[in-house]
């Protein structure tokens, strides 16, 4: 049963609180998923260590071509950040598409990743940005690439009773590069995606230098379309290429059937459409970047 609720003002204090509680305390940021899981007794904790009052974690910064998003940054803040809108509009869009404004005003982007939901919208974009997380613990700081943050379906590789993800960072897309995000959902608000896809492309003249594609929920976390990406390397910028990539993306996807959010067959049927749309939008974006 929850006995304490801490609101530390520094990362160091947060880590001490975790340590002093010997695995009984757990990090909470926005908490929008965590409190529900806690009420449903899906997670147990004696104490919550709330990091939303830690000033240094509330920032979105850009330095040396790297954008850093603090762990207390909410979806609303990310969606409205000029920095993110300018450099990674797909991420802003993904942040905007989560839940509702009342949720986005509390829920954090980093929490969306740490929570390890298979269809997390921002995580899909962060996957193509090849973001990495700054993970703090008693042992020090380490950087973990996004794809290593998932230990299984709804299972994070981060242990929130001893580790604190302080930031997430990614390299700012360059000239001739663009990102895009598309989402298929049953209504425009308060809905998890049936499918979401993010693309990032780097163009070289009339060819793809390279492209990255991430899709969800077709596996435990965002799944990269490895086969498609391979084919796209150096491929000409044509409709045929995009079409081929869309079909190849299926080889990396293993969607489940959900009675609520679409059968496996349907998801397989429309995934290429979304991949096509994401790729096309990313290319358009790259042309203007």
């Amino acid at each position: 049963m929850l006995q304490e609720y801490y609101l530390p003002h520094s990362v160091a204090d947060a880590l001490i609180l975790l340590k002093n509680n010997n695995g009984q305390a757990r990090i909470i940021a926005g908490g929008t998923d965590l409190v529900i899981d806690h009420q449903a007794e899906k997670i147990k904790a004696e104490a919550f260590v709330d990091i939303s009052n830690i000033e240094e974690l509330k920032k979105i910064e850009c330095a040396d071509g790297v954008i850093t998003i603090g762990a207390a940054v909410t979806h609303s803040e990310a969606a409205r950040s000029e920095l993110i809108q300018k450099h990674a509009p797909a991420l802003a869009m993904a942040a905007r598409s989560v839940g509702s404004l009342q949720i986005r005003n509390i829920a954090t982007v980093v929490g969306n990743v740490v929570n390890a939901q298979p269809a997390a919208d921002t995580a899909v974009v962060l996957a193509v940005l090849e973001a990495e997380a700054e993970v703090n613990s008693a042992a020090g700081v380490k950087y973990v690439p996004l794809y290593k943050m998932y230990a299984g379906v709804c299972k994070s590789a981060v242990d929130s009773t001893s580790q604190l993800v302080t930031r997430i960072r990614f390299i700012v897309p360059q000239r001739n590069q663009g990102t895009a995000f598309v989402r298929l959902c049953q209504r425009k608000a308060l809905a998890l995606p049936m499918l979401n896809v993010a693309a990032m492309v780097s163009l070289q003249g009339d060819r793809f230098a390279w492209a990255r594609l991430a899709m969800a929920p077709v596996g435990p976390g965002p799944v990269r379309a490895i086969e498609a990406e391979k084919m796209l390397r150096g491929a000409p910028l044509t409709d045929e290429t995009v079409e081929k990539a869309a079909q190849l993306a299926l080889e990396s996807a293993n969607p489940r059937s959900s009675m609520v959010r679409g059968s496996r067959e349907y998801r397989i049927g429309v995934l290429p459409v979304l991949v096509k749309r994401a790729l096309t939008a990313a290319v358009a974006r790259a042309h203007t970047n």
């Binding site: 509702s100 209504r187 425009k188 608000a189 308060l190 809905a191 609520v260 959010r261």
Partner: peptide, 16 residues
């Protein structure tokens, strides 16, 4: 029941 909350029962929102 598979659709037992507003989250997975898709009644329209203001944006729909």
């Amino acid at each position: 029941q598979q659709n037992y909350s507003f989250h997975n029962y898709f009644l329209p929102t203001a944006e729909d």
